[in-house]
Design a protein around this nucleic acid. Structure first.
Lengths: 357, 357
DNA sequence: TACCTATATTAAAACGATTGAATGAAAGAA
DNA sequence: TTCTTTCATTCAATCGTTTTAATATAGGTA
């Protein structure tokens, strides 16, 4: 109270000790109350209240480092994005965030921009930061070797979104690609199209095969023949953007091949955008001269002209599902539930497809 | 060496103590060597080597929490995104990451998805995590009140990207909007356009005014008259996506007004995409019936058909510049250099603009 | 000799929380 | 009475580093 009081009042953080002194209880009690430890069951109600009030008044904020050091819990979950510039990621992120909000966990984001070295480096960084769980958003091509190694070195609940990692210890959340492929081709077929060009995904991407299986199943079930002369395949490439280039080139190629087609099913939305561009360059337009359907429903799909009809991956739900699985494993101390989780896709109607007349 | 050695070999972390014991030096020396503290100048070369080797062999990883607790440095910089779904952000992020890479700092990302409450909440979280510096990526409309309050409560080097925060303690990195507006209108004028429609940005956004000033300066310098009947203004709205809707509606409105225009300058790329859609709905197309120019050069601009001619904001550089300023302030202990930093925009030619014939 | 400086290393005290074991008090049981 | 049990709180150790001040040795200088 005197001028120049003993404790410097400026720039000195308020600690648990301060709250203890001021409230008249021991640091232990204060800690137990404020962190709602199991023992707090025994603490008298008015004690709790007094401590909470004092903490409030002093503006006490626990030091995360001291806390994590002692309790050996970081209260964080690592989120490793394979490439944030892929619009695919953003909604997944949102889903993760929403699911984590209100829990004691905070996501720590890292973006590897599709570089393997970065990926492993960031993975290491996350381990060093002692994340308690891991979510990998692994769109497009990515090599899972590093992840497996790391996760076995220091076991923790891990889930991969967008990729089927067939590994016991790691969970996966993906869209049902087979159903998606089926849905897409069915839509075109229902509109009356029979001469349909197909751009398959890169060979190494398991999604490609799954979607293709869906297409084949539809063909079988409806007696429709897939004409291999109208089929093209994207090459394996690492950047998500390459889908655009690929879609453009392959569509140009299809147009030149003189195999008539009234509709085109692209591997994903970027490929579809590329196809749109190629059509335009040939003086054609969708859906008048050719219907086009994509896959994913990235934000761009709605903004292009025409808006792209597509198969939506429920990205926000996928992110949330992944987060929930990590949380469950963390709370209940048991390992992740059965490996693979598939969410249903959904047809989104826009303006790039139309009835064949 | 005996079976069942005293220290449990599993799941027990390797600490500084272990390295000390094994190498035969004290924890102090080991710490000094491994963290390259000033005192390491006096440590004998071979001592250093031995310690480093031992650490390597044991696979020692310092505990970040213990380290931060004692040293009072978190080695992190908070990156607060106003809305990550705005494609504007992503490249800025990349710039930040690149600039931080190789320093002792790691970015901690938080995304407020354009909600004020979230913004302040996350800001709090970042403070709690003891970030040493702060970068706010503040595209579109955002309220800086919370930021100012927080930054004065716990002073740290802070830079805002994409917004001119006229405040001593907070730095800003933005594109030179005035020059950008000038460049855009000049491009259309050079192509021969005189009847140019303009969609201004929201009133509350300072960028709008700056770009407008650039347009007016060009008009003055070249004796061109801005016809208010061809001018529209986006309304103040919080979601970045609203630029698309706005662009569409206002363009439709312009078309109906019967004021002929051969070119349209949109406030940003999303607005331009909206305009494109409106033209298409009126049976018109760019650039044949109307040239369109955008602003920002978000990734979508290159992928739409036609590709959108636009004024590029050097986003990656902006991010890097912001990070560098924070780093400088941190290293040299002095406050941030002069408040506002403006980077030059650049005209990117694509297919949505053409010569008037 | 005594004193200083530079080099090389370490002891010990933090940093600010959590937690297992201990202590006290009150109430109920034998 | 004495022993247990339950409730309420605290003691003291601990988490794994960093850092300040101290120690020790050797060489140089006055």
């Amino acid at each position: 109270m005197g001028r120049m009081s003993a404790r410097k009042s400026k720039s000195t953080r308020i600690t648990l000790q301060d709250v203890a002194r001021k409230s008249g209880f021991s640091p232990s009690t204060v800690s137990i109350v404020l962190s709602e430890a199991p023992l707090s069951r025994y603490v008298a109600a008015q004690t709790k209240e007094r401590i909470r009030k004092t903490a409030e008044v002093l503006g006490y904020r626990p030091d995360v480092f001291a806390r994590s050091l002692r309790s050996r819990r970081s209260n964080t979950i690592g989120v490793l994005l394979f490439d944030i510039s892929d619009p695919f990621c953003v909604l997944i992120l949102r889903g993760i965030e929403k699911a984590l909000h209100g829990t004691r966990f905070m996501p720590i984001l890292m973006d590897a921009h599709h570089e393997r070295a970065q990926f492993e480096g960031y993975l290491d960084l996350l381990m060093e930061r002692r994340v308690e769980g891991l979510i990998v958003v692994a769109n497009w091509l990515f090599d899972e070797g590093g992840l497996l190694k790391a996760s076995s070195r220091e076991p923790m609940p891990s889930v991969v979104v967008g990729r089927d990692v067939s590994e016991q210890r790691i969970g996966s959340v993906i869209v049902d690609n087979e159903a998606g492929g089926y849905l897409a081709i069915k839509h075109l077929y229902d509109l009356g199209h029979r001469q349909i060009a197909l751009i398959r995904g890169p060979e190494k991407l398991i999604d490609s095969t799954r979607r293709w299986n869906g297409i084949e199943r539809f063909a079988r079930e409806n007696g429709w023949k897939i004409d291999p002369r109208r089929v093209r395949q994207l090459r394996d490439a690492i950047e998500p953007i390459s889908g655009f280039e690929g879609g453009m080139q392959l569509t140009a190629d299809l147009l030149q091949s003189r195999q008539k087609f009234t509709a085109l099913m692209a591997f994903d939305d970027l490929t579809a955008l590329g196809a749109l561009r190629a059509l335009a360059q040939a003086g054609l337009s969708a859906p008048r001269d050719c219907s086009i359907i994509g896959f994913d429903d990235v934000p761009l799909a709605a903004l292009s002209t025409p808006g792209i009809t597509t198969i939506r991956q429920p990205m926000e739900e996928m992110g949330a599902a992944a987060a929930r699985r990590v949380l469950d494993a963390l709370h209940e101390g048991r390992s992740l539930g059965s490996g693979l989780q598939m969410l249903p896709p959904e047809l989104v109607l826009r303006d790039s497809t139309a009835k064949l007349d």
